[in-house]
Amino acid sequence: MTDWYPFWLSLRVATTATVVAGVLGVSLAYLLAKGRFPGRSLLEAVVTLPIVLPPTVLGYYLLTLLGVNSSLGRAWERIFGHPLVFTVTAAVVAATISALPFCVRTARVAIESVDPTLEAAGRIAGLPEWQVAVQITLPVARRGIAAGVALGFARALGDFGATVMVAGNIPGRTQTLPVALYDAVQAGDDATARTGALLLGAIAIVILLAVNRVARSAP
């Protein structure tokens, strides 16, 4: 019988990561699209880094940053009584960081393509800036934002390298589906590997179709 734990864990981790990356990503996208502040290009580069870095390298840096010998890792341990690394939370952190640039970049393009005369109309109507953002910019850009969040979910669900580095490969605890798939192939368990690959592949294709559909439909 197939062990479904990695599948449910992957869904849980990817969903949590997508919520965090979505909220953080859309805020960052808004800031990068509208803000003019020193360090903007640097922030943009840092946010994009997880796309270009090899996932294991990303995982290595996260491990260095959050590990038991790092100051962040020690602070976590003092507050929560156990290390952050090699837990489900660490898997969520890895998935969030991996998903973030997809959310930010797609949402940013969508926010930048909102017709500025609509935002101007809101200001002239007397809306304060935060209401211009909430009532005009974000709703008009919602399709692009949704596409970015969907891509982020796909990336979070499929992450292998960063997850294995910071969350490890503990069956029944931190072993997500992509990691379990790798283990199954190593162990020669073809049935489990096939099921895992089919599931991950099917979810990815469904997300791709949904993103294309959203992108094609008129605003």
Binding site: T117, A121, Q135, I136, R142
Partner: peptide, 8 residues
């Protein structure tokens, strides 16, 4: 010119 009505 194009009224700038919020489409949503």
């Amino acid at each position: 010119q194009h009224a700038a009505l919020l489409p949503h």
